[in-house]
Amino acid sequence: MNTVLGSLQGGGSRKPRLPRPAALGMWPVLAVLLVIFVWPTVVIISRSVTDPPGAGLSNFHRVLTDPTVLRFGWNTVRTALIVTAATAVIGYGYAYAIYRAGPALRVLLLFCALLPFWTSLLVRSFAWTVILRDTGIVNWLLLRVDVVDHPVGLLRTPFAVTLGMTQILLPFVILPCYTAMMRFDRDLHLAARSLGARPSAAFWLVFFPVTRVGLVAGSILVLVLSLGYYITPVLLGGPGDQPIAVLIASQVTTQLDWGLAGSMAAVVTAVVLALLALGWRLVARAFLGEEVR
């Protein structure tokens, strides 16, 4: 037995081969997901070319030319980009604040970052409506300090949607950034300083490039998730601020136009998967702890 252990340790390969099909554990989940996940998704996407019968690519033509679809699409992309940029800047900065904080403050700041993560999406979106409505706390404050003399319409605006989604998605950037920063080797900073870099140069030339993986991975995830957002825009946005997800749902429930819904679903899914494939290496590293070379 000693020789077995010895040869394993000396063998270089960290994961020993065991005489059993290694992927056995994958089979149940693959089989079940094929039925309850892949099949429905394939069905809905295939409706894009089969509904109405013989539709061909006509539904996709509509997606690319129909002004309603384009307006909803533009809302989605614009909001997603703004939210991604906002969460990237705020999330990285906040993660840096956690990183630099003392032990007690660090726990507190982490708690603040995690609490929304655990709070129901619906509850948070609803809470924003309470905050932003004409009789909400923000307008109350503005009226109290006499900045305005009648309530400012904040709810049902693109601003409300962006604010709500930014807050809700912020933890997805904060956490991987913070993880990357905690892994940062402090000696690299000292090395940069000893080599003549001032603190700001050490930050931008060494700290930021090394911890950027967390930022990129988190931002990809935020971008991908925000492209499919539904609840928050419906509750916080006006009728003109709705994203593509809302249009897809309404095509199915009110228009019964499965073909158009299917083609929009196909486009969104394709974009999401393409983005994820592009950033898969970084996302896998940041969120799955997987070293992909």
Partner: peptide
């Protein structure tokens, strides 16, 4: 997107 899953 959950909407895609949902309608499927």
């Amino acid at each position: 997107p959950t909407v895609v899953l949902a309608i499927g």
